[in-house]
Nucleic acid binder design. Sequence first.
DNA 1: AATGAATGAGCGTTCATTCAT
DNA 2: TATGAATGAACGCTCATTCAT
Lengths: 221, 221, 221, 221
Amino acid sequence: MDQLADRQFIVPDMVLPEREGGYAKGRETYEQILRAALGILIEEGYRPMSMRRIAAACGMKLGNLTYYFPTREDLVRELLDAVIRSYEIEFDAIVHDPGLSPERRLGEICALILEDIRTKKTTRLFPELWALSNHDAFVFDRVQNLYSRARESLNEIVLEMRSDLPLETREALALFISASMEGLTVFAGYDKPFEPRMPLLSEISVEAFVSVVKGFGRTAG
Amino acid sequence: MDQLADRQFIVPDMVLPEREGGYAKGRETYEQILRAALGILIEEGYRPMSMRRIAAACGMKLGNLTYYFPTREDLVRELLDAVIRSYEIEFDAIVHDPGLSPERRLGEICALILEDIRTKKTTRLFPELWALSNHDAFVFDRVQNLYSRARESLNEIVLEMRSDLPLETREALALFISASMEGLTVFAGYDKPFEPRMPLLSEISVEAFVSVVKGFGRTAG
Amino acid sequence: MDQLADRQFIVPDMVLPEREGGYAKGRETYEQILRAALGILIEEGYRPMSMRRIAAACGMKLGNLTYYFPTREDLVRELLDAVIRSYEIEFDAIVHDPGLSPERRLGEICALILEDIRTKKTTRLFPELWALSNHDAFVFDRVQNLYSRARESLNEIVLEMRSDLPLETREALALFISASMEGLTVFAGYDKPFEPRMPLLSEISVEAFVSVVKGFGRTAG
Amino acid sequence: MDQLADRQFIVPDMVLPEREGGYAKGRETYEQILRAALGILIEEGYRPMSMRRIAAACGMKLGNLTYYFPTREDLVRELLDAVIRSYEIEFDAIVHDPGLSPERRLGEICALILEDIRTKKTTRLFPELWALSNHDAFVFDRVQNLYSRARESLNEIVLEMRSDLPLETREALALFISASMEGLTVFAGYDKPFEPRMPLLSEISVEAFVSVVKGFGRTAG
DNA sequence: AATGAATGAGCGTTCATTCAT
DNA sequence: TATGAATGAACGCTCATTCAT
C-alpha cells in the first residue's frame, strides 16, 4: 500500500522533454498547458480538448497558447509524447529483483499494471490512444512502441521460465499477458462495473499467465 | 474457413430497426446514411464523422440528412444501436452444441471472437466505443450491455466446468476470458503488428483460459 | 361582466374569408392551421411561428401545410387578414345607441377597448403588428386601415360634441383618444405591471378624453 | 428648434459600457458592430438583424463578430442596454427648471417626448422592444425599467399639481400621460400617416393631460 | 512572454420551398 | 387531401490559425 502511494508520488503524470533556452516562467507555462490539456483529455475526452478550452483552463488567452504550441498538432503530439514517456518510465522502473523467482516477479509486475489500470488517468487515457492510433500513424507508432518496451520485462521472465520455447512463442506469451491486462481496462478500470472485483481478477490473471507460460506446448495444445 | 465465410455472409454489419411508414426509397436512403456513417467511423474515426461528411458520402444534401436524422445525436445513437445489435445477434448465434465438451465449446467461442477481432470493422469500431463510453453514458450502457450478453455463453461453460466455484468467481473468470480477448484488438487486430500471429495467440489464449478455469483455486493461488 | 363574457363568446378570434369549392374537411384544416399559427404568434411570438412549428402544432406534416399555404407569406397575410378582420367586426359592433349622450357613448367605447387591451390576444398581437408594420407595407396598410375604421365611431362622437371644430381637429382628437388607449397596451395589458390598475386608468382616460374634447380650443390652449 | 438640434447633437444613439483593456482599434470595432446592428434593427427589423448580416454591414467576417460578441444574445443585450441607456440619459436630462409652473414643465416634457417619437430611431425601435418584451423577460425588465425612470419627472409634476391625490392615483395619472404619448408612435411617428399633424396632436395631448390632472376626482368622475 | 484582433472553414441545426407519391 | 423526400440557403456557433501589438 505504501508502495502504491510512493509510486503515485514518484511517477509523474507527464515527463517533459528538455527544453533549451527560455526562462523558467516559460517552462512553467509550458508545463501548465500540457497539464491542463491532459486534464481535459481525461475528464472530457479528446474532442473537447480544443485550443480554446485548454487556454481557458490555463487562465490564459488563446494567442499565448499558440505562442507555445503553434498548431494543435504540436500540442497533441507533445502531450502524448510526454504522457507516454511517463508510462515508459513507470514500466522501466518495474521490479527486476533477481532474488525473486520469475513467477513472483511476474505476479508483481501484473499487480502493478493492474493497479495502474484502475487509475482514472489510465482508464480514460488509453482508450483514447487506442482509438487515435487507428487513424494516426504517429500515435500508432508511439503506442506500439510503449507497449513494446512494456513487454521487455515480460519477455525476460518468460525466457527464464521457458528457455525451451522459440522466440516467437515466448513473445506471443508476453503479448498475451500484456494484452490480457489491457483488455481489463474497459471492464475493471476506473468507474467500470468490475472495478471492485479487480483483486479477484488480478488473482485470476496471474494464475492464468503463470499456468499458460508453464504449460504451453507441454500438455495437449 | 468455410464457416467464417458463411458467418461473414450471414451476419450483417448493422441491424436496422423497423421503420413505420415511408416509401421504399426512404428506407434505402436511411440505410445508406447509416452505412456511410459507419464507413467513415471505421475508416476515419469518430471526429470526422460529421453530418456534412456523411451527407457528402451519400451524395445527398445536408438538409436531407437532417430529414432522416434531425440531430447528430439521433444519428449516432441509431448507428451505434444498429451496429451493436449486429454483434448481439452474432454472439447470440454462437455455438451451443451440447454434444461438445465445455473445453471444446470454449475453444470454438474464442476462435470465433478472435476471428472477429481481426476484421477491420471490429478493430476500428471498438476502440472508438471504448473511448466514447468513457464520456457518454448512453454508449457506456450500450457497450457494457453488449459485453454482458457476450459473456453469457462463457458463464455457462465456466459453470459446467467448475460448478464448485461461487458465482462471483465464475463471473470473474468469464470476464477475464472476454476482456483478455478484447485486449488483443489493439495488438493483433486488423493491420496491427501481431495480426499475423493471431493463430498462435489464439492457441495461447485458449490454453490459458482452459487451464485457469480448470485450475483456479485448486493449486496454490 | 355578462356582457364581457358574451363578447368573448360572440367575437371570434379570426374571421376567415369565404372559400370557393373544396370540401368541409379542407375548410376545417384551413381554420385549424390559422388557429394554430395565431396561437404560436400569441404565445411565442412572430419568429417561432415557422411553417414547421405550425404544422407540428396541427399534428400534420409540413407537406400538407404547404398544400394549404404554398408560401409562408400567404399564411402570414391570411392570418393577419383574418385576425384583423375579427377586430374590425368587433369595432363595428360597438355601441351606436343614439339614446345615450355622446359622453356616455364615448365612455362605453373606451371601456370596451380597454377591456380588450387586457386580453392576452390583444396584448400579444398588436405589438407584433406594430413592429411588423414598420417594415412591411402590407401589414402597415392593414393595420392603419383597421385603426381608421376603429376611429369612425370616435369621430362621430367628437362631431356630436364639437361640431364647431374643423374636421382636422376633430380627427386629431379621435386619433389622440384611440392612440392613448393603444399606448396602455404595453403598460396595463395582459400580464403587464399596471394591469391591476386598469379600472383606475380607464376612469382617468375617459375623463381626459371627455375634458379635452369638450375643452379643446376653448380655454387657453 | 435650436434646442432640438442641440439635443440631437448631444444625446448619442447609444451609450456604450466601459470596456476594460483592448486597443483603440478594438473599441472602434466594438462600437461599429453595435452601430451596424442598431441600423439594421431600425431599417429592417429584428429578424434580419442576424450575426451574418451585421458582420457584412461592418465589412468584417462572421468569426470576428463572435470575437466581440460570443453569442447573439450577448450582442442583443448589449445593444438594447446601450440604446436604452441613451434614452435614460435623455430622460434624466429633462427640464427640472423650478422657475416654471408645473403646467409649463409638463408641456415641455411632453413636447420633448413627442419630438422624440417622430425620430426614425424611436418610431422603429420601440415597437420592436414592445414586441420582444412580450416574450423575453430581459427585454421586458429593461423596457419597463426605462419607462419607470421616464415617469419620475411626471410623477413629480403631478404631485406638485395635485398633492391632494393619493399616490396610486398620481402614479396612474403619470402612467396615463406616458402611455398616451407612446401610443402616438404608431400613428404619428416617423413616416406614419399622422406625422404631419404631430403639432396639433401635441397641443391636444398637453391640454388633455393638464385638464385631467387638474380635474380628476373633482368633477363628476 | 503575452494579449488583441481578425480570418476562414467547418460544425449542427432550422427553415421555406418544391415535387413525387 | 395528405405524406414523403429532397433541396438550398441561412442560422448561431466553435475552431485552428495568423499576425499585429
